[in-house]
């Protein structure tokens, strides 16, 4: 199994006719993902076609869900309209909304989180690379790829990966695959200060998933989400976890690319997170080159 999505997950893409959304919808189709619908307001009735796959476009998510039984969505909508797009997915009772969009105002996300209270929809992101559950085919073809991750670096297997950063996730996945070790699911939770799903949420899902045997957790400076996950792992963890925290050399008070990657008021330092990892028995990779090896030594 896997967490959140399986190769059978029926995906709709919000913003499928934009350059970014279209490119990644194509790559997901190439990967073998079930892309069943697109949504672009005002373009309902048109068809998004790629390599013989015809994806119907709808004006609204509600209509797309009704017609295609889509259960998950990838949001590629520009920042000023992204909060609305996420809430449209929530309103249509999707199981999962994955917001790829980078640059959504924080207050918009505060409102989205509040509006989602009590909802059954899970939000991943925003400002994230998305989710991959690798398939059984060549270069993991046939899996479910939601977002912008390179599918081909994955391999079907039993390691769960959770991270706030895109390229650092790819780095970990590549290290695993190069050593012949596959992944159950890889989740990029995003680099914003307000996001839908935390490290802890994903770690709990991996701990409950019988096909996940070990976890790589990648964090970065800012906030205390990594510490919260570490504390839970210390009390309830049943599987080996290894990790890395990016930003030990970042100057305080500066945002390091990601809106959420900032040490402010002495809080959110890499040191505090590494300390929490060690206290919880999480294997700490001395450098990002050793993320996979650190975990594999524990297994």
């Amino acid at each position: 199994m896997s967490i959140l999505v399986t190769p059978q997950t029926r995906l709709l893409v919000q913003g499928i006719t934009g350059a970014f959304g279209a490119r990644h919808a194509q790559l997901s189709i190439d990967y073998g993902t079930q892309v069943v619908a697109g949504v672009t307001p005002g373009k309902g009735g048109q068809i998004f076609e790629h390599r013989g796959v015809k994806v119907p476009i709808f004006d609204t998510v509600a209509e797309a869900v009704r017609e295609t039984k889509a259960t998950a969505s990838a949001v590629f909508v520009p920042p000023p309209f992204a909060a609305d797009a996420i809430l449209e997915g929530v309103d249509a009772r999707l199981d999962l909304v994955v917001a790829i969009t980078e640059g959504i105002p924080v207050i918009d996300m505060i409102k989205v989180k509040r509006a989602m209270q009590g909802s059954t929809t899970r939000l991943i992101g925003p400002n994230c690379p998305g989710i991959v559950t690798p398939g059984e085919g060549k270069d993991s073809h046939g899996g479910c790829r939601i977002g912008i991750a390179p599918g081909y670096i994955h391999k079907r297997g039993n390691i769960g990966v959770v991270s706030r950063s895109g390229t650092l996730t790819y780095e970990a996945v590549f290290q695993l695959t190069s050593r012949g070790v596959g992944q159950s699911t890889c989740v990029g939770i995003g680099g914003d200060p307000v996001n839908g799903t935390s490290h802890l949420d994903v770690v709990q899902m991996f701990m409950a998933d019988p096909d996940t045997h070990g976890i790589i957790m990648i964090g970065e400076i800012g906030g205390s989400a990594e510490e919260e996950a570490a504390e839970w792992i210390k009390a309830h963890g049943t599987k080996p976890v290894a990790g890395f925290i990016a930003g030990a050399t970042a100057p305080p008070g500066r945002r390091m690319g990601h809106a959420g990657a900032i040490v402010s008021g002495g809080k959110g330092t890499a040191q505090a997170k590494f300390d929490a990892f060690r206290a919880a028995g999480i294997g700490v990779a001395a450098t990002p080159s050793e993320m996979a090896d650190t975990l594999l030594k524990m297994m």
Binding site: E171, A246, M256, T287
Partner: peptide
């Protein structure tokens, strides 16, 4: 570097091996 997380880690690994970014 491409990507914020990888860019931060690149700074970190330079310092790890005794350099300064």
């Amino acid at each position: 570097v491409n990507g914020a997380g990888l860019a931060m880690s690149t700074m970190d690994i330079i310092q790890h091996f005794g350099g300064m970014p």
